[in-house]
Amino acid sequence: MSNHHKFHYLEFPATDLAAMKDFYGAAFGWKFKDWGDAYVEIQESGVHGGFALATEERGPSNQGALVIIYSDDLVQSEKTVVECGGEISMAPIDFPGGRRFHFLDPSGNELGVWTEVPIQE
């Protein structure tokens, strides 16, 4: 299968690389590889990605594309995000086929977490 026009890599601006690794490692079990002092590769997250040290040109935001992580247990994921230092920016909501919440990571990036909920007919 070709990778042409498929999502391939996600990169998050980070104000503190160590805090980002601590948070995402504890909250979601991701692994990391450091590439110098300004970049960390994200591993075992389901898609390739990394944390880049924030610059004046590119900093954390909740105004861009929304990255959404899947969870088998949304209640536990929300609890873990908070315990690990994340801030809930949108309480869990229901939508057809699922439920989700949004959070801010230690650098201020906003992400979502969702789970599938069967549609009742």
Rank of each mutant, 00 (worst) to 15 (best):
M1E: 08
M1R: 12
M1Q: 07
S2A: 02
N3L: 15
H4E: 13
H4W: 07
F7I: 13
L10P: 02
L10T: 15
E11R: 04
F12S: 00
P13I: 04
T15Y: 09
T15H: 08
D16F: 03
A18K: 15
A19Y: 01
A19E: 01
A19H: 00
M20D: 13
D22T: 14
D22F: 00
D22C: 14
F23E: 06
F23S: 03
G25I: 10
G25P: 10
G25K: 11
G25W: 13
A27C: 12
K33P: 02
D34E: 15
D37G: 15
Y39W: 12
V40P: 04
V40L: 01
I42F: 10
I42T: 14
Q43P: 04
E44R: 06
E44H: 11
S45F: 11
V47G: 03
V47P: 05
H48F: 14
H48L: 14
G49M: 03
G49S: 04
A54F: 10
T55N: 09
E57M: 07
E57H: 12
R58M: 13
G59L: 05
G59P: 00
Q63I: 00
Q63V: 06
Q63Y: 12
A65M: 04
L66N: 05
V67E: 08
I69P: 03
Y70P: 09
D72C: 04
D73W: 04
D73Q: 05
D73I: 08
V75K: 10
Q76W: 02
S77D: 13
K79A: 12
T80V: 08
V81D: 02
V81T: 05
V81N: 02
E83R: 12
E83V: 00
C84A: 15
G85W: 09
G86D: 05
I88D: 10
I88H: 03
S89H: 03
S89W: 03
M90Y: 06
M90W: 12
A91E: 14
A91M: 05
P92D: 02
P92H: 11
I93Y: 14
F95M: 08
G97D: 00
G98E: 05
G98V: 04
R99H: 06
R99A: 09
R100Q: 07
R100A: 07
H102G: 02
L104T: 04
D105I: 09
G108H: 02
E110R: 10
L111I: 00
L111Y: 01
L111A: 06
G112W: 09
W114D: 09
V117D: 04
P118W: 08
I119C: 10
E121C: 12
